[in-house]
Amino acid sequence: MERAGAGDLGAVASQGPATAERGRVLQRLAFIDVMFRRATFSCALLVLILLGGVILSLFLGSLPAIQAFGLGFITSQSWNPVTEKFGGGPAIYGTLVTSAIALAIAAPVGIGIAVFLTELCPPPLRRPIGIAIELLAGIPSIIYGIWGLFVLAPFLQQYVQPWLIDTFKGAPGLSALFAGPPYGIGMLTAGVILGVMVLPYVASVCRDVFETVPVVLKEAAFGIGCTTTEVVRHVVIPYTAVGVIGAIMLGLGRALGETMAVTFVIGNAHKIAASILAPGTTISATIANEFTEAVGDLYTSSLILLGLILFVITFVELSIARLLYMRVQRQGGG
């Protein structure tokens, strides 16, 4: 049909004006034009419909749980399929703690990588290293999961966790944080794996915003004798502060919703433990583990409610990240 359309265009030119044929062809072209435009427009609207559909269907699905448990669901610690008492406390707590650990790793290292790539790295190595970091982002999360379970968890159990327990034994406050037997799997392991997964996102967005800094500004600072570190600290970072925060929040958004990597190493225990070495659970891990086995409407509905809570948290979080990022782009003369 496209071919025929192109041919007709030629025909129009050769036939001259004011023939009935020409009018028909033009009419058809106008029709195709309008249809194509409408098709693209409805596809664009589909994005909004999808978002609305996700929120609406999750809300409808979780109605039974909302009616049964109300707001108490967010803090309640019970999770008992037999008595049908469900609460999201441990899962929400686990999600927040593992994401916090992930950010504690990903934020400083990610910014460090971005500084290295934009300021220090010899230009020929810039592209290959940048691509390697982005490949880290391309590895599917299930691979991080199986690697975390068979490689990272035993490693942490044997070397890192005993050391943490010994070191912080006497320290008030910290001893509770690093208490208990080294299980290997648990919140810390999940947080570390998440940190590595999120790292490339933080690094590449930071690199992008660092590149928006006008070269004149940096040259001026170098010109009055600043070292590279001082230029980064006093020129680059202040100039891009909003963007860097946006990058970290984008990473946080990924960490909050990540499922498979966490499910392997979190330990699936529905309780809130003070120690980050203890097994716990996250919203996404709970859903992944229990959804297909959930019997009874209330059980399923509680899991969907957890999904709705996760979606709302990440939605708000990512919106803030996106708004910050957009502000930087505008500032950068985009």
Binding site: G257, T259, G307, F311, F315, S319
Partner: peptide, 11 residues
């Protein structure tokens, strides 16, 4: 769309 891009796939 940018939000859907990083929305949790399990949802």
């Amino acid at each position: 769309n940018d939000i859907l891009l990083s929305a949790p796939s399990i949802v």
